[in-house]
Write a protein that binds this DNA or RNA. Structure first.
Length: 602
RNA sequence: GCGCCCGUAGCUCAGCUGGAUAGAGCAACUGCCUUCUAAGCAGUGGGUCAAUGGUUCGAAUCCAUUCGGGCGUGCCA
């Protein structure tokens, strides 16, 4: 990568300047040197501000440091540099250098930006996200977690991590009991056994139960259950319906529904981790085991006939109940067991994506991890704040209250996956966001998804048109295509591997300065892609990729408008084509990373 | 009350591990289609970076305090 090359050149220069004793009291080469973008293109392509940062330690004026560094800098292979007060070192790349980077994009194609996994140590990451209870459909909040979580998993994968994604199914405990009561009542209402007025108050919304518990579905499942259970051919008796069975059916239906909705969002997990099956087994119960470990460590105590974990000792604001007085374990107990299980599977890093309203649980789980002698620093929590929906200009707050839920599948149907994912990814996780329904539905330039996809489609259409025959408007005769199929196939070999020829075409033509600057800016942005991935992965921020894409698309449209490709000299055509195709490659890669389609035609 | 998060253009947001003149998109207004997709481009207007103080060569960015908003503060999950 060009960036690494430049940083290394600067490190070498600083080392030489140090050895020559020209950097004052500075004693060592800095570990980190940032390569900054220039806000003003007149300043150059990239800037280094290390001289200002070293000024304090060196006890020298920044500009003197910059001059000393440049004196030893071998910049010939990248271009030219200038030193500007108060101490910026500005870099202007020469064409060959930019061209070399373009060739790299063409060479790597769909792998451009994808980092080698063998180069990273300690790179096994588990990303757990969504983890909705199997007691209802997925609402917009889950949708944001799904979009961001899957985009993050993908981003980390691109950045060279070995990513494993997981959905924790919370299929044990009180919410399942509540689901059972809800499901039983919902079925009995539909069978006329009880009136709707008798639907329990402390139950999940009836409407959401009715969504999955349809007569033809539950009757078949109940009958199947009955048949497998006995040899008697009896009919289902809805009056004596077993709540647990009704709950199990509802749970399975909700898991199926969630799986389908997530699949429609291009969200797939490596593992669906069932709490019930993995932690609450009859034999070798992991939750009781965790309590025993905590007890042996002296981290538990009895009070009011409940078992308490000494969370306060580990930094929480108070102690937490782990087993209620009636003997039931709390959510925390299972969660500790789950985290122990994750650690025991040998990941180097655990990332949990939680709803922002769960942030109060962080000290508790961290404390517990410490209490069972695992390293809480390996656990990273990402909190995703609420999404509110804007409809007809009015903001409707999302909450779990009855009737106020907007489900992901409805949104998917309304705006499509590309727009849904993009909008949900395109903002920082720990900021609340507003989902503008009308904007997401728009299929025009106002909608950033279409704007980006359109850039890709435009690039694709150039390629298509190059190799297809044209009809002359005046003579109505068919003319030969610009490139034959064979030439098109050969494109990469013929125009993309000769670094000294591609961009020189521009200097031979009467290309105006603005157009050249557009091209420079576009190429610089294209080769920025791997850096964007690295930076975004580092701070776990997929939205950086979407922000990058919007900017890149804008630069491409600008380029497209200023530079015709078909109908110019062959030299110029190839030079421009190489840029258009590199753009197509990078846009496609970035969209793929985000789980959004890159259409060839729109 | 305490804890966490947020506050940048009318709206939605970038920029925040300190760097050069604070940027996009939408909305408003003005140009550009006989030429590769106008789902586009070019241009104009729009700011007390919530406020105050501090740190320093330099602060939207870091620190403190204040104000405003959200969430949390259960033997719920």
């Amino acid at each position: 990568m060009l960036k690494d090359k430049i940083i290394n050149l600067f490190k070498d220069a600083i080392k030489k300047a140090l050895d020559a004793g020209e950097l004052g009291q500075l004693t060592e080469v800095p570990n980190e040197i940032d390569l900054d973008k220039c806000k003003n293109p007149d300043h150059g392509d990239r800037a280094i501000s290390i001289a200002m940062k070293l000024a304090r330690d060196a006890k020298m004026a920044p500009i003197k440091i910059a001059e000393a560094i440049v004196k030893y800098l071998d910049y010939k292979s990248i271009g030219s540099v200038t030193v500007v007060p108060p101490g910026f070192i500005n870099i202007i790349f020469d064409w060959n250098c930019l061209e070399g980077s373009l060739v790299e994009i063409h060479r790597e194609k769909e792998n451009f930006g994808y980092f080698d996994k063998t180069k990273k140590e300690k790179n096994k990451i588990l990303v757990e996200y969504v983890s909705a209870n199997p007691t209802g459909n997925l609402h917009l909040g889950h949708g944001r977690q799904a979009a961001l979580g899957s985009a993050l998993a993908s981003l980390l994968d691109w950045a060279g991590y070995d990513v494993f994604s997981e959905f924790y199914i919370n299929d044990a405990g009180v919410q399942i009991e509540k689901l059972s009561a809800s499901a039983k009542a919902a079925i009995q209402i539909q069978e006329g056994v009880i009136p709707e007025s008798e639907y329990p108050e402390e139950a999940y919304p009836l409407e959401s139960m009715l969504d999955v518990l349809k007569p033809e579905v539950y009757s078949e499942k109940l009958q199947a259950e009955l048949d497998s259970d006995s040899n008697l051919k009896t009919k289902v008796d809805y009056k004596t319906l077993d709540a647990e069975l009704a709950g199990k059916i509802a749970k399975d239906l909700f898991i199926d529904l969630q799986t389908k909705v997530l699949g429609d969002m291009e969200v797939r997990f490596d593992n669906w981790f069932s709490e019930k099956e993995n932690l609450h087994q009859e034999k070798d119960n992991k939750v009781t085991e965790i309590c025993k470990i905590l007890e042996d460590n002296g981290n538990l105590y009895d009070q009011d006939s409940a078992l308490w974990f000494k969370a306060k000792h580990y930094g929480d604001e108070r102690d937490r109940v782990i087993q209620k007085s009636q003997g039931v374990y709390t959510y925390l107990a299972a969660d500790i067991a789950y985290h122990k299980n994750k650690f025991d599977r040998g990941f180097d890093k655990l990332i949990n994506i939680w709803g922002g309203d769960h942030h109060g649980q962080e000290p508790g789980i961290r404390g517990a991890i410490k209490a069972i002698n695992y390293d809480p620093d390996l656990l990273e929590l990402i909190f995703i704040q609420m999404v509110s929906l804007q409809k007809d200009g009015v903001e409707v707050k999302m909450s779990k209250r009855k009737g106020d839920i907007v489900n992901v599948d409805e949104l998917l149907e309304e705006v499509g996956n590309d727009a849904l994912r993009f909008f949900l990814i395109d903002s920082q996780a720990n900021n609340r966001m507003v989902f503008d329904l009308e904007l997401a539905k728009k299929q025009d330039k106002d909608n950033p998804v279409y704007y980006i996809q359109y850039a890709h489609a435009r690039a694709a259409s150039i390629l298509r048109n190059l190799s297809s025959a044209k009809i002359n408007i005046e003579t109505k005769e068919e003319e030969a295509p610009e490139l034959s199929e064979a030439e098109l196939q050969d494109l990469e070999k013929t125009i993309f591997t000769k670094p000294n020829e591609i961009l020189q075409a521009f200097s031979g033509e009467s290309v105006d300065e603005d157009s050249l600057q557009t091209i420079r800016t576009l190429i610089l942005e294209l080769i920025e892609f791997p850096n964007v991935i690295e930076d975004a992965a580092e701070i776990r921020a997929p939205y950086k990729v979407s922000v990058y894409l919007k900017n890149l698309a804008s630069l491409f449209h600008q380029f497209y408008n200023e530079n015709r490709i078909i109908g110019v000299s062959e030299e110029l055509m190839k030079a421009r084509l190489s840029i258009a195709l590199a753009s197509k490659t990078v846009i496609a890669n970035a969209l793929r990373l985000l789980g959004i389609s890159a259409p060839e035609k729109m």
